[in-house]
Every structure is written in structure tokens, then in C-alpha cells.
Nucleic acid binder design. Structure first.
Lengths: 184, 184
DNA sequence: GCGTAACCGGACTCTGTCGTCCGTTTTTCG
DNA sequence: CGAAAAACGGACGACAGAGTCCGGTTACGC
């Protein structure tokens, strides 16, 4: 790994850039300019482009970090006994994360077939297991996939972004979860 | 009105611009450039700006036309006896329209507080009546407003846009409708 | 037909953003 | 310490889209 080892200052700046990008994406979505990210990180924007050849590469880096966090949520949920409860618990956790981070779903869908493909595939595979279990337990309708769940929850929360009521997203996620419950 | 009467060619071009804009917004969303709209309309883009001082004004014009169509749907639905059925029927109609027109929900939310305010208010008032009736009939959960319904249905359909399955949006709307149904 | 007012569209400006270049500064290591 | 390698960032280029201007053209009333 010593070949790819960065100099100390470079390493520090890289982290600052990633932090600044994550913050700004969370606050205002992926459309913030690279200049602004660099400004918040306290570096010139050329420094950003030295580490990430492209703005999309930077977005991917931030998003894949967040996907890893989501993977943690699913793994926790999979440990739960009650399959239906596990599913709902994961959705609420993921919902909290999306509600806190405006750029998450946007970035997730934006860099669809790029560097995050493997992380995304891993996440989806885990969610699929969660879903399958919930379906077998009769707690979840059978005609939904991991992508469907991500999309429905993600878009519902995005729909609540501008609202004055900061908790609106919870009602929306509640509606979607009710809709996803198996019909009896 | 003769003071605002346009010359014949100007009138013709205005209609072409509106048609072209509606087509392109439907196909690719509101982000198509004014140049492209003008090109499809067969005019220079200055001609577009002569009629609509701003791109947003053009979007508003297109959207308000579509809102009027939606208003027609609600009025039809309000004539229905069964309040729950009326609500669902409207949602499916509106869904068809959104699914056909990628720019609709985008434009609807984009020009939020602009020239379409009155049309939007009228639509919302009608939807509210539809909702109220459905709630009284016990066919709809009580904690949703017209805005909530528009948002949930609109975002669910937008989530289905890229999909290879052109009918995916129907499943998503189905999930949302199930979620909106009153819990018993 | 003809003059005028309305209209047209190509060329232009302005702004904002991504991405590159290169002279200067900083770290690192012998 | 001193030199080489790495990194820095301001200046620059390129591009795209919104909105403006003006010289030429077209419709319309007389």
C-alpha cells in the first residue's frame, strides 16, 4: 500500500474534502458546485479534482461510504427475530438517514452504474434477504424487490424535503410501509 | 381583448412553442434547454423569450394547462357515488397523466409559488373535497392532505421513470393507494 | 400595392460550472 | 540542512444555458 500512500497534508486535505462534500450534499443535494465544496474544505478546487478526476467520482466516494452505513443497518436488522419487525426497523433507520441527508437518494440514483456498483449490489442482496424473510413471514407483499423498496422510501422522503414540518417524512414513510404490508 | 391580439404568425408560433415545450417536458423533464424547444417548434429561441419573459414562465404556462386537465379529472371523480372509488379513480387518472409526462410533477413542484398558484389552489380545493368525502366514508386515512396525496403519488411515479418495465408505476401507485387506505 | 407596426431569428453577452495547467510551496528523507 | 518529490491553488479554457439586441422580414389595414 505504500505506493498509494499520500503525503500527510494530502491525506488531511482529502479527508476535509470528503467531509465538506458530505455536509454540503446533505444540506443542499448533489448540485452544490465543486468550488463551494473546496471553499468549505479550505482548499482550492484544483485540489479536489486532483483526488477525484470528476465530480461524479467525488459523489460516488461519498455515497459508497453511506451505502456501507446502510449495509450496517441491514445486518443489524437481519439479527432480529421477527422478520416483519426487522424489515420495518431497517426502513425506519434508512429513512432517518435519508431525512438527514438530502443528497443521499439523489446521489444513490445518480451514480447508478458507476463505482458504487459493487457496494450497491451487496446492499441490495442483503435487503433482498430481509425482504424474502418478511415475505415468508407474511408481513410483506410479495411483488416488491429491494429496488422497489429503496425507490418508494427514497422518493417519499424526497417529497417531504421542502416542507415546514420537519417530521413530515415520517408520515410518508408510514404510508408506504402500510402499503407494503401484505394485504389480508 | 383586441389590444392583446397577436398577429396571425405570432399566434401560430406561440402555439407551436407551447406544443413543443409540452412534448419535450413530457419526454425528458423540465431541464431541456430553451434552444431545443425553439428548434423543435421551428423558431429561433428569441421568439420563445418574446412570449415568455423567462423559462419558468414557459414552464408555468405548460403546467397550468395540465392542471386544468387534472381539475377536469377531479370534477369527473366528484360525480361518482362511491367516495372511496372516486378517490382511487382520480389517483389512477392522475397517475396515467404523470406516467405519460415526465415534466408534470417536476414542473408542478418547481413553479410552486408562481403564476400557477391560483390554478393549483383550485385543484387542491377540489382534491380536498374528494379526500374529505373518502375519509368520511372510511375509505381513506384521516392524516393526509391534498398536498400529501399529490406528493406521494407524484414521487412514486417519478421513481419509476427510468425503469425498463413501463408499467412499474402502476405497482408503485398501488402500494401508495394501499397505504392510504384507512386501516381497520 | 404600400407603408407601418409587429414580428423574426442570428449573433451576442453574461453567468455559472467543470476540468486543466503551471509556477510556487510544503513535506519528506537522506 | 538541502534537494527531490509531492502537493497546492490561482489563473485559465471550454462549454452550456438563460436572456438581450438589432437589422432584416412579414403580415395586415388602407
Amino acid at each position: 500500500m505504500s505506493t498509494t500512500q499520500l503525503r500527510a497534508d494530502a491525506q488531511r486535505n482529502l479527508e476535509r474534502v470528503l467531509d465538506a462534500a458530505a455536509e454540503l450534499f446533505a444540506e443542499r443535494g448533489c448540485d452544490v458546485s465543486v468550488d463551494e465544496i473546496a471553499r468549505r474544505a479550505g482548499v482550492g478546487h484544483a485540489t479536489v479534482f486532483r483526488r477525484f478526476p470528476t465530480k461524479d467520482a467525488l459523489i460516488s466516494a461519498v455515497v459508497s461510504k453511506q451505502i456501507r452505513e446502510l449495509i450496517g443497518f441491514v445486518e443489524t436488522a437481519l439479527a432480529e427475530e421477527d422478520a416483519g419487525e426487522a424489515f420495518r426497523s431497517f426502513v425506519w433507520h434508512a429513512g432517518e438517514m435519508h431525512a438527514r441527508d438530502r443528497g443521499l437518494h439523489e446521489g444513490y440514483t445518480r451514480c447508478a452504474m458507476r463505482d458504487v456498483a459493487e457496494a450497491k449490489a451487496e446492499l441490495n442482496a442483503l435487503i433482498d434477504r430481509l425482504i424474502e424473510r418478511a415475505q415468508e413471514a407474511g408481513a410483506l407483499r410479495r411483488d416488491v424487490s429491494a429496488d422497489d423498496v429503496s425507490t418508494l422510501v427514497g422518493t417519499a422522503i424526497r417529497g417531504a424535503y421542502g416542507a415546514s414540518d420537519a417530521e413530515l417524512w415520517r408520515r410518508y414513510v408510514g404510508v408506504v410501509l402500510d402499503g407494503l404490508a401484505a394485504r389480508g
